[in-house]
């Protein structure tokens, strides 16, 4: 039976209560996307600013939601700040695989240390896999950042 203590770890409640990088960034230079979880009405606004060589210079989020969605957003921003867009792509694949959303060819199972290195605090969201109705809460911020970055590409193309 899945355990609540595994879902609501201290690090998750800490990010929920003291979210890192909450706020907004001017658009442009940043791009913005808004994600919805129609199930519970949660919303997340993600702002991201990317440098010429693909590094994430600045990232911030705003939104209201459950402990899982807010902690996940906070952990995500902490993880990807200073990295590259490609680096986020790898982490996102790993994050989805951790939640059982990867395809069969996805990354192989990692040890906790490996996961921690790849995902930062977001590794603590592992137990969400055991609560299927909550997986969308965990992925909301990640999908929204993905959209914000996709918006940047189409912006550059025009």
């Amino acid at each position: 039976m899945p355990q609540l203590d595994d879902l609501y770890k201290e690090v998750i409640l800490d990010h929920y209560r003291r979210p890192r990088r909450r706020g907004t960034i001017d658009v442009p230079p940043a791009t913005h996307a808004r994600g919805y979880n129609p199930l519970c009405g949660d919303e997340i606004d993600m702002y991201v600013s990317v440098g010429d060589s693909g590094e994430i210079d600045a990232i911030a989020f705003e939104g209201k939601g459950c402990a899982i969605s807010q902690a996940s957003a906070s952990m995500l921003t902490e993880r990807v700040q200073g990295g590259t867009v490609a680096d986020f792509g790898d982490a996102f694949d790993r994050f989805k695989a951790m939640l059982g959303l990867g395809d069969d060819d996805g990354p192989a199972f990692s040890t906790d240390e490996e996961l921690g290195r790849q995902l930062g605090d977001a590794e603590a969201l592992q137990a969400v896999r055991e609560f299927p109705s909550r997986i969308k809460c965990a992925t909301l911020a990640w999908n929204t950042l993905d959209q914000a970055l996709a918006g940047r590409e189409s912006f550059e193309e025009t």
Partner: peptide
């Protein structure tokens, strides 16, 4: 400040 979605998961247990 417990979000309803979290309440629902905890109650379900």
């Amino acid at each position: 400040d417990v979000h309803p979605h979290d309440i629902s998961t905890i109650l379900d247990q």
